[in-house]
Amino acid sequence: MSAQSAEELALAQLLVQSLNLDGIEPGAIAPDAALFGQNPGSLGLDSIDALEIALAISQKYGVELKSDDEATKKSFASLRALSAFVQQKRVGQ
């Protein structure tokens, strides 16, 4: 398991806080682990969480998530992918 970057840790803190994931330490979320689904190692998030994440990200980073956008779909794969997506969109704005 690779270590979190500073951006990934900040995003992990936002996820834990906005989703009320009690018992999960932001620093302990593996950057490459799945966010959604029930496979081993996944954070086990679902569609309602996705809506909360979109709100939190638009409020904190000013980045808009859309479901018909392939980049958004890929970004939900892991903390690392989501963080990269947010940083890229932020720079692009």
């Binding site: 569609s47 996705a50 809506l51 979109a54 709100l55 638009s58 808009e64 998530l65 859309k66 479901s67 018909d68």
Partner: peptide, 12 residues
Amino acid sequence: HAKPFFPADIRD
């Protein structure tokens, strides 16, 4: 035709 989900989807 769509089933918009995120706020930005609904707007679009």
